[in-house]
Design a protein around this nucleic acid. Structure first.
Lengths: 147, 147
DNA sequence: ACAAAATAGATTGCATACAATTTAATTGTA
DNA sequence: TACAATTAAATTGTATGCAATCTATTTTGT
C-alpha cells in the first residue's frame, strides 16, 4: 500500500537469507565445538579433504573468501595440526596448503556431523533440493556479474 | 559412493546458504555506501522505520541479534543522528530506541535501494517466493527448537 | 632484457556475530 | 518484606568478513 512497503523487513528476501545462514552456523557450533573447529574452519577442511592440496587462492575460490580471512584461519588450522603450509616450487608467490595425517583422521571422526545437522533443518528431500538449486542460481548469477 | 561424500562441499545445503548470504550483503555494500550505512545498520533502520520506537531486546528479536552486536551498532546509528536512546520509564533496565527526524528523512532517500538490489538477484517472482518460504520454514523450525 | 603491470599472500583496520560475564533493576516467593 | 532468581544492556574476548594497502614475485609489452 505505502511507498515504504519495499523497505519492510518482511518484504525482503535478503533478510531471511541473512538470518537463516546465521541460524544454521549457530546450530553447527555445538556439533563443531567437540572438534574444536569453527564453521569456517570446518568448510575449509572440507576443501582440504577433497583436494589434499590447494593454494590459498584456490581455497578462496572454492569458499568465496579472500586472503584477509583465510590467512589467519589457515594459520589456526596449521597450529591445530590438520594442515601444513609451504611455499610453492613453481611460483614463489604462492603458498600450497596440504592436509596432514591428523587432518585425514579428523575426516573419519566428522563423518557424522552432516547427518546430525540435517536433522535440524526441517525440510523434505524435495524442498532441500529446491532450496539448493535456488541458492546456486543466485550464486552463479553473481559469479557472472562479477567476472 | 564413498562414505565421505556427505562431507563434500557440493553436497552441503549449508554452504550455498552461507555463501549466498555473504554475496548478497557484499552486493548491497556499494548501494549502502552512498548512505554511509552497513547492511546490519540498514536492517536495523528498517525495524525503526516500521516501529518508530523499540527496546534493544525487541530489535534483537526482530533481527536475531543480541546486545553484544546491537549495543555498538545502535551507538553508531545514534552518532549518525538517525536514532536516539533513552532509558525506559517503565523499566529502568530497558533502553528505548526511537527514530529521529533525520532517520525518517533517510527512509525517503532509501526507498530506491530494494529495487536496485532486486535487479541483482536473478530469480523470477515465483522463484523468489519459493526461496522466501523455504528460508522462513527453516527459521521457524529453529525458533521452535530454541524456545 | 627490462621496466611496467599483474598476481599471491600477508597485514591493517573496521564492522559484525556471538558466547560469556558483569552490572543494575525487577520479580517471584517464602 | 527480605532475598534469591530473572532479566536488560553493556562489556569482554574470540573469530570471522572484507576493503585497502603492502611486499615479493612473476608476466608482459616493447
Amino acid at each position: 500500500m505505502s511507498k515504504y512497503d519495499c523497505l519492510k523487513l518482511e518484504n525482503q528476501l535478503c533478510f531471511p537469507l541473512y538470518a537463516c545462514a546465521k541460524a544454521v552456523t549457530r546450530h553447527y557450533k555445538p556439533l563443531l565445538d567437540e572438534f574444536d573447529l569453527t564453521y569456517t574452519q570446518y568448510i575449509t577442511m572440507m576443501v582440504m579433504w577433497e583436494r589434499k592440496s590447494a593454494s590459498v587462492k584456490e581455497i578462496g575460490e572454492c569458499l568465496y573468501l579472500d586472503s584477509g580471512t583465510l590467512t589467519p584461519l589457515i594459520n589456526k588450522l596449521e597450529s591445530k595440526g590438520y594442515i601444513e603450509k609451504h611455499r610453492s616450487d613453481d611460483d614463489a608467490r604462492g603458498v600450497v596448503v596440504s592436509i596432514t595425517e591428523a587432518g585425514k583422521k579428523l575426516r573419519d571422526k566428522m563423518v557424522k556431523v552432516p547427518n546430525a545437522m540435517g536433522g535440524c533443518v526441517a525440510l523434505s528431500e524435495k524442498e532441500a533440493e529446491e532450496l539448493y538449486n535456488l541458492l546456486y542460481k543466485i550464486l552463479k548469477h553473481f559469479d557472472d556479474i562479477d567476472s
